[in-house]
């Protein structure tokens, strides 16, 4: 039954090479913790992706209740955390997951660095990985404002003030992020849009590039 459905699709779209490229490959001994326990350092990339998936899913659920405007933002966060069933868990996963992504990504970066895996022919994958790192930091910065409590407000104010001290373009960066002259209603909607649409879009594109490159080149060989 499944076999015939698969064959029917494969006949028309030739998905076997695609599927093989994604799933049907071998895991070499030197990255398999079953053979060498120290190879657990090769897990951090996968765990980063796992936590990223958690972030995307929990974020999708949060937007069901979150309202990005200055009057309702705080109340909606308060409501979704304390009144909605499992709201505490969903917001907790998103809040603490943000830190966990940074930690895992940091460990993954260190693993790649200290095993020299960024060297030829994998230079481009390292650069894309660093761009993912910066996107993640951007997601952390924009997400921090959204609960609209004092911590969010003042940290964003300080952050944008630091960005505004950049010569020539600093004022443009500040007014782009503020959407005006102060942290206010425009800032919140902007940060929401950046946090929920722009950066995740960029992130997914970069992740796709990251994974296509690793599948095409394979994991780096043993040291």
């Amino acid at each position: 039954m499944f076999k015939s459905i698969y064959n029917w699709i494969d006949e028309r779209l030739d998905i076997t090479p695609l599927w093989r490229d994604v799933a049907d490959h071998e895991v070499p001994e030197h990255v398999n913790p079953a053979h060498h326990f120290s190879a657990f350092v090769y897990c951090f990339g996968g765990l980063t992706f796992f936590i990223t998936v958690i972030q995307i899913l929990s974020g999708m659920f949060l937007t069901m209740y979150y309202v990005p405007d200055v009057i309702h933002a705080y109340a909606s966060v308060d409501y979704l955390q304390h009144q909605i069933p499992f709201g505490k868990i969903v917001r907790g996963m998103h809040h603490f997951g943000a830190s966990l992504v940074i930690v895992m990504m940091f460990l993954h970066t260190l693993r790649v660095f200290f095993t020299g895996s960024y060297k030829a022919p994998r230079e481009m994958n390292w650069v894309v990985g660093m761009l993912i790192f910066f996107i993640m930091l951007g997601l952390g910065f924009t997400g921090y404002l959204l609960p609209w409590d004092n911590k969010a407000y003042f940290a964003t104010k300080v952050g944008v003030e630091i960005a505004a001290s950049v010569p020539y373009i600093g004022d443009y960066i500040a007014s782009f992020l503020y959407g005006g002259d102060i942290v206010g209603a425009q800032t919140l909607t902007r940060f929401f849009a950046i946090h929920v649409f722009f950066l995740p879009g960029a992130l997914i594109a970069m992740l796709a590039a990251h994974f296509i490159m690793i599948r095409r080149q394979g994991i780096s060989g043993p040291l």
Binding site: V70, Y74, V77, D78, Q81, K88, R91, G92, H94, H95, F96, P147, W148, D149, N150, K151, A152, Y153
Partner: peptide
């Protein structure tokens, strides 16, 4: 619980 302070 994820922290939440007072409204901005």
């Amino acid at each position: 619980a994820a922290p939440l302070g007072y409204p901005a």
